[in-house]
Write a protein that binds this DNA or RNA. Structure first.
Length: 470
DNA sequence: ATGTCC
């Protein structure tokens, strides 16, 4: 496949064959080494009915189920555009929340090990059931699927101010719990308020460097400040919803005359019973993911309060695995689009009406989880953001889990992190090894390419002080 | 990502 370099950070895959739009890849040549399989997925996505503008890829693109991770695709709702669960991913509403503590690193230092011990004991994690909340019955799950973070706050697990700093105010209204199947419910009941495993984490971090002081100031973070970053999703509930609706769409697709180059791209029109059912269930899972992060926030606040007498205030909460109905101008026309972001973060520009008032002047905070040994970033949305106001979501893997586990010893990694002043609380050595910093690309390179491509601007770099891993 | 294969 030919990748035409349009400028240093933007490449084009010309339209050919069944492609309805070209591919546009924001990256550097270096970041695209070994990206052949995921670029083929960019081409596959370009064939979807109703897709507009381009099949986009972010600088942290890598291979995923059907769509690439780091993919953005918008379809025109009123022109037969489709929705595809593969364009959201299995971990619906996986996302990141950043909390800022009322202290700097030196002030927390004497209490850090104990804070990490308490977090290690009180943050539920790992595969399978177990969470902060034990739901009392189906009615409570129903309210949670509709109310998201808002419901968790109503039940006493947070502050009203938290909701203003959550994407969509902590919950979307179009959740349809009736489209969440019995198995998804069953899996979700016992996992509310848990990290999960793999790349999910809770980290205590320090703001190492501020690049955009006015934006950092508006976000409520400053150099040296201690932060807590939570990266998790909708656990088994989201996974089961994806499984159920992929199956339903796979069966229904032919009735709509839709053919896709890869069965993993199963889709139906947004405006079809199957499309609406998926989007309703997906929104419910999105609310579940938000409640999940709200409850983990509560657990982190309790640990910080009890051990160190410190408070945590919410900077922002944003997902990087969602599809949303948004209105954008395409080719001079305002159109209602279904924007799929999979491993891509929404990044609203300054002035956007959906941003809370105190952030509107600087743009939406974008939270980029890096690795436990290097850094994470806070970015901000910019005007003109070239892919329906989307940017990267993380470092992107360089090694497979298998390769990382083979090359890295978990116990040696923990010792190495400790030498660097990072207190790790892993659940298993294997899990830690799979997430070793060297298993990932350089997150600094990813965010630099994202900024260079005009998708966002870099606000601050955060470095880990302690990590709780599933 | 995921009760890592109903």
């Amino acid at each position: 496949m030919e990748l035409v370099e349009e400028d240093r950070y933007r490449f084009r895959i010309a339209r050919e064959g069944d492609m309805r739009v070209p591919g546009v890849v924001f990256a550097t040549r270096g970041l695209l080494a070994d990206a052949e399989k995921s670029l083929a997925q960019v081409v596959h996505v370009a064939t979807l009915p109703g897709i507009v503008a381009a099949s986009y890829a972010m600088p942290d693109i890598h291979w995923g189920y059907g769509f690439p991770i780091g993919g953005v695709a918008a379809t025109a709702v009123d022109e037969g555009g489709v929705v595809s669960p593969g364009g959201v991913g299995f971990d619906i509403s996986c996302g990141v929340r950043l909390l800022a503590a009322d202290c700097d690193r030196a002030e927390l230092a004497p209490a850090l090990e104990e804070v990490m011990d308490v977090l290690g004991r009180t943050v539920p994690r790992g595969a399978g059931p177990g969470g902060v909340w034990r739901l009392t019955g189906p009615g409570q799950l129903e309210r949670l699927l509709r109310g998201g973070s808002r419901y968790a706050v109503e039940e006493g697990h947070g502050e009203e101010r938290d909701l203003a700093r959550c994407e969509d105010g902590g919950a979307v209204a179009d959740a349809d719990a009736g489209q969440v199947g019995p198995r998804a419910r069953e899996r979700g009941l016992g996992q509310v308020g848990s990290l999960g495993s793999a790349n999910h984490f809770l980290e205590v971090q320090q703001v190492a460097e501020v690049y955009d002081p006015p934006a950092a100031d508006a976000f409520g973070i400053a150099a040296g400040q201690v932060c807590v970053m939570i990266h998790c999703g909708s656990r088994g509930l989201g996974h089961q919803i994806c499984t159920d609706h992929v199956r339903a769409m796979d069966r229904a697709m032919a009735r709509y005359g839709i053919r896709v180059p890869d069965r993993q791209l199963a889709c139906t029109p947004v405006d079809s019973p199957e499309g609406r059912a998926y989007l309703g269930a997906m929104a419910a899972a999105a609310n579940y993911g938000r409640a999940n992060r709200q409850l983990l926030t509560d657990a982190a606040r309790r640990a910080f309060g009890r051990v160190a007498g410190r408070r945590l205030s919410l900077v922002y909460d944003v997902s990087h695995n969602l599809a949303k109905i948004e209105t954008h101008e395409v080719a001079g026309r305002r159109r209602r689009l279904c924007v799929h972001r999979k491993g891509a973060t929404r990044a609203f520009p300054p002035g956007h009406p959906d941003l809370p008032e105190d952030l509107r002047a600087v743009g939406q905070p974008v939270l980029i989880p890096g690795t436990m040994g290097t850094a994470s970033y806070v970015l901000a949305g910019v005007a003109g953001g070239g892919a329906f106001f989307s940017t990267c979501h993380g470092a992107g893997r360089r090694m497979s889990r298998h390769e990382a586990a083979r090359k890295v010893s978990g116990s040696q990694l923990r010792a190495r992190l400790a030498q660097d002043g990072i207190a790790a609380r892993p659940l298993s050595w294997r899990g830690l090894a799979e997430e070793a910093p060297e298993a990932y690309k350089d997150v600094g390179e990813v965010v630099a390419a994202s900024e260079g491509a005009g998708l966002c601007r870099i606000v601050a770099r955060l470095v880990p002080l302690g990590v709780v891993k599933g």
